[in-house]
Nucleic acid binder design. Structure first.
Lengths: 140, 140
DNA sequence: CTTGCACCTCTAGTCGCTAGAGCATGTAGG
DNA sequence: CCTACATGCTCTAGCGACTAGAGGTGCAAG
């Protein structure tokens, strides 16, 4: 019960084994203590930290931002203004990405609908790609 | 007028100079003829190909798919079934990505709204990240 | 005691570029 | 013709965030 191996840590946190080692190598996760046979031995706090990282990565935060968020978490007396700023910036990114993907979706739909399933020289997919003037959505 | 330099090709196609050389190196664009002084000299057809590539990249197609699409374009007698399949697959990807980004957006909004602008230990941003159980959107 | 999985380190590869070093070439003005 | 200076050339290395593989060690069950 005492010793959490890297495999258990992976199962409990949802972060893959090589990724855990990678996070250690870039200093996102502190190097844990080692067993007699040089195997990593994690504490419950490490698992929580890994879960935090994983969730943040799933939300699309980059490692630099996560580093800041973790530093804030480690010092709960601090103002959460930075955390708020990071989350807000990410929100704006996500909103922009959604908008651009919607435009893209519309363009792809036109392409797919316009495909007559015949020969390439009548195919709207190729045609739209070849001539951007035919693209009605000025997303780029 | 005859010789299009790589710089002109870049300006006309919207693909950056180093990127053009990169596309040549991976075989996406054929190596053009060279001037006396070993400088690349492009034809209008190359510019069209670069514009095609650029548009496809903007639509998020990966290089492997673009290779297939270009091969199809080069042989207009072929059935456009593959082009259709590639575009459809990309459309499904985009739709999934939009769905997941919408869930993500909702989660980020909760985080940002819940931030009391006080100390970190009351901040919902950090809290939600630390405990995925508090995340109401089962997007992952 | 042996089998076999989990763990270790280290290097290299992925994708689609981008940046930089250190040269050669092409062009416009004086 | 000479000089600047932009643009071109090749080559190597770096980015982010992992992922894969080689080649070796640790450990628990049968």
């Amino acid at each position: 019960m005492r010793k959490i191996t890297i495999g258990d840590a992976a199962r409990q946190s949802g972060v893959k084994v090589p990724t855990i080692r990678y996070y250690e190598s870039i200093g996102l996760l502190a190097a844990p203590s080692r067993s007699e046979g040089n195997q990593r031995s994690y504490e419950p706090a490490d698992i929580r930290r890994l879960a935090f990282i994983r969730h943040a990565r799933e939300l699309g935060f980059e490692v630099g931002s996560i580093r800041t968020l973790l530093a804030l978490q480690d010092d709960p007396d601090q103002s959460c203004a930075s955390a708020d700023a990071i989350a807000k910036a990410r929100l704006i990114e996500v909103e922009q990405r959604i908008r651009s993907l919607m435009a893209l979706k519309a363009e792809l739909e036109i392409m797919v609908e316009g495909c007559g399933h015949g020969r390439v020289d009548q195919c709207r997919v190729i045609e739209v790609l070849a001539d951007h003037g035919q693209c009605m959505h000025p997303h780029h």
